[in-house]
Amino acid sequence: MGILHLTRAVYDKIRAHGEEIYPSECCGALLGTSIPDGWNVVASVRAGNTRTDSAHNRYNISGLELVKIERDARRQGLGIAGFYHSHPDHPAEWSLTDLSEAHWLGCCYVITAVAKGKAVLTNSFRLAGATEEDKAFEQDTIEIDE
């Protein structure tokens, strides 16, 4: 099991985003650096959800927004460590949709369950595997750095 280090500020921000956007799904990117046992995330960036047709159970970040997020991250000496989104009134577990649409191998996918507008559990899953064909989610431990 790997470790996802989050600053308290990032942890609070991504959960607050889920509460703010409820009952839609929020989404965004996590910026940081790779460390031997996982990722050290020091910033989060909110992104727009282009799935306005089904925002309560789907999310999508536009490619151009990702390009700009990555460009800004590079300027800060950071990389995209992963992404976060919320599951309104659903568990903080990855769905089959999450897996089929996940393509950032080695990166973390953080999911916050938001129940009746209140953020509850937050989990992180690393997209493991060597290729698209053998990818699988593995749960990471979240460590919050105060």
Partner: peptide, 13 residues
């Protein structure tokens, strides 16, 4: 690479 996903109405993986 693209980024998308979302919870499903039923079931748990």
């Amino acid at each position: 690479p693209s980024i998308a996903g979302g919870c499903l109405p039923h079931g748990r993986p």
